[in-house]
Design a protein around this nucleic acid. Structure first.
Lengths: 252, 252
DNA sequence: AGAGCCGATATTGTCATACCAGTTGACAAT
DNA sequence: ATTGTCAACTGGTATGACAATATCGGCTCT
């Protein structure tokens, strides 16, 4: 049927609630500095008029900005913009990934990779201590990696699943939630990282070694192997980041 | 005047917006499991009636739950509860600190401390590499610690300031935001930690050593000293956590 | 002149109601 | 069996009114 061909080319239309659009606009203005920390925010009714939406949508957006700690809303007074560097949480990292021009902020990419490098070894260590029963599942994932050795995107998916299981085995809720936050940022530049982390993703031996260490409860070995693994990705990242842009020093 | 004495005992009454109260109730039901992952959420109009508030307040609360990735709201269909362990970010950690009975969840406290131990050395390392000019400020903070050697609360404040400066010097936005998220959890059990971390907080020598390493750009030394410092706190934490509650295994 | 009271004013918070828009399933028409 | 229609949910948006709060200027009293 010719229809099935046409259908295949269709993509779900993207819908966005008004409050989401309002949130995005204000968030962008804050991140870009057009609304600097300490600046007063326009009154809700002014925003309604300027944005052409009702007050409820504006309020929903402001509530979200408040929860993200980007603004300080006070009953009766004028709401003010906060310094998100001092107040926002890790959830906000994904919002900082894309610059105004639409390309990736190398500082954010580097930051994510550095944090990953610091956490991964400890996650592996704790998993070896507390979650030895996850080894079977890890083992099957490593096998699947072997079968998908040439499909970079598939390897990426398997690696994410591997780490997710490992984080669960580490039995540390802070790591679990931080992993979720980092993964969200991670996924948004997936295309970029799939290329850069090629060596790391193909290092099936390291994944297998971590699995073995976890299975035997050897915390030190698990930590060391994980450190080796993420180190592979680091070099690739540093190489690419150096090309994209010379180090940008934004000291306050 | 007798008034001034009475006034001193007063505390500002805590006001809470209705939408905040709604958010808290739903959040609590989700965390406690009364609303399990996958469960359908009551319709907005039903929630209005049940809670005795306006629909706008309910919607603001639902938006916040949606942003925290605790619920999945969809136009036309029924909203459902998500598995916050799989979707929520690090910002949500603070909400997990207190159990239903009102005391601290030892698993959460332990998790925060473990994550802190993993990040602190790398923060110190990067600060030595990138933020040597912060050493002067760090030095003055260490001096202040010396003057407040007997005031545990004051030491806690100074230590927090010390780490905040160090994180800024590390020039890593992921660390900065993660620090903000952790600090929020941290502050909520400050009274508890001030006692437990006494040894660490009084270890002025380690703070001074980190400062010196940062000043000289000795990344390896900064990392090692920071690791020593947080290790002091770990033992205290482990001791207390063992007393409060035997290890609770909640494997999924 | 200065401290404290006070009220006008602007702002956010809450509410009620209505209507618009998307989803689902039943059911008749084809 | 497929398709189109419709009704009854759901969340999304709009509007206007009123309450609660913060801010600031002017006022009074000292």
């Amino acid at each position: 049927m010719s229809e099935s061909v046409a259908i295949r080319q269709l993509r779900p239309v993207q819908r966005q609630a008004l409050s989401d659009a309002v949130y995005e606009q204000l968030r962008h203005q804050i991140v870009s500095g057009e609304l600097a920390a300490g600046d007063p925010l326009p009154a809700e009714r002014l925003l309604c008029e300027a944005l052409g939406v009702n007050r409820g949508s504006v309020r929903e957006a402001l509530r979200r900005l408040q929860q993200a700690r980007l603004v300080d809303v006070r009953h009766g007074g004028t709401s003010r913009v906060l310094d998100y560097r001092q107040s926002a949480g890790l959830d906000f990292l994904a919002s900082l990934l894309l610059t105004a021009t639409g390309d990736f902020d190398p500082d954010v990419v580097r930051s994510v990779m550095e944090m990953r490098s610091a956490l991964a070894p400890d996650i592996a260590r704790l998993a070896a201590l507390r979650g030895r029963d996850v080894a079977a599942k890890l083992h099957s994932l490593v096998e699947a990696m072997g079968n998908a050795h040439d499909d970079a995107a598939q390897l990426q998916t398997l690696a994410a699943e591997f780490w997710s299981r490992l984080v669960d085995a580490a039995d540390n809720v802070a790591y679990r939630l931080a992993y979720n936050s980092l993964l969200e940022t991670y996924e948004r530049c997936r295309q970029l990282l799939v290329q850069v982390l090629g060596d790391e993703l193909r290092d099936q031996a390291s994944y297998a070694a971590i699995t073995k260490a976890v299975a035997s409860g050897d915390a030190a070995a698990a930590e060391a192997r994980a450190r080796e693994l993420v180190r592979r990705g680091e070099s690739g990242i540093n190489r690419v980041l150096g090309q994209i842009k010379p180090a940008r020093r934004t000291r306050t």
